[in-house]
Amino acid sequence: MATVENAPRHRSVGSAKLREALVAYAFILVPMGVFLLFFIWPLAYAVYISRYDWGVFGKIETLGFENYRELYRDEIFHKALKNTLLYTALVVPIQMALGLAMAVIVNAGIRGKTFFRSAFYFPSLASSAAITAIAIYILSADGLLNAIIGGNRPWFGDSDTALFSIVGLNAWTTSGTMMLFYLASLQAIPTDVYEAAAIDRAGAWRTFWKITFPLLKPGHFFVGVVSVVGALKVFDQAFIVSNGSGGPNSSTLTAVLYLYRTAIGDIRFGYAAAMGIVLFVLIFTVTLVQRLLFGRPDTA
């Protein structure tokens, strides 16, 4: 008697679990589909075509790993990588420092804090192409900057200053976004820790460096990763200020810009794809290293 009564209940529990699982999968299906279609598929496709000489209408010649070997010897690619790494090494600390500073200011509860928050974030919202176009005017030989500080150096036209000018430009536009991330992390720090520090006679500076800064570890990690990945992929500004050439003297030629020039100018999609794969591996590795170094945040 007991077993007969138990049996239906047992079965319905199992099928309820199955139904739950199916519903879960159904929900994931769409975003997963998007992810596969727009991220995994192009990546796999890029790996595929990187082994060929690939033209407008497809396969021209099978090259195996020749594209990668050529990349190894390609001194322009090396220059592009160097430019990109230099750019990243400069822009990331600036963005992080500025973003953190702005977050601290906005969080301090000063008057007009909403205004500052909007003002700091605005450059990130505006179109990067529009901002770059304006920057070209401001930084031209007879532009606003030179009118203020004197001299007639064409900032984007001089191979010594072009890349650094892009660093400054991007630091200004992207710091606002970093500010938002830091702000979220900042507000996650419980206030009583600050109260304890105040009673423990910590001044503003010590409180910032010994309490706030270490407790922002999740923020540092996130901002760091986002910053580095974004910097390694820089393209827009380099393209616009150099008119697509990566000049002067390839000083603004970033890895992605070179990839673009190879694809559009030389119509060597396979070679460009190989570049993309190398860049992907580079970014992936850097992110992994960051994860290992800044991984676990402290809680409690």
């Binding site: 990566g246 000049g247 002067p248 003297n249 390839s250 030629l253 020039r261 100018g265 030389d266 060597r268």
Partner: peptide
């Protein structure tokens, strides 16, 4: 064909 890189190198070297 595929001379973009060559001209880039040529211009860089000239600079």
């Amino acid at each position: 064909p595929t001379f973009t890189k060559v001209i880039d190198i040529a211009n860089n070297e000239l600079s």
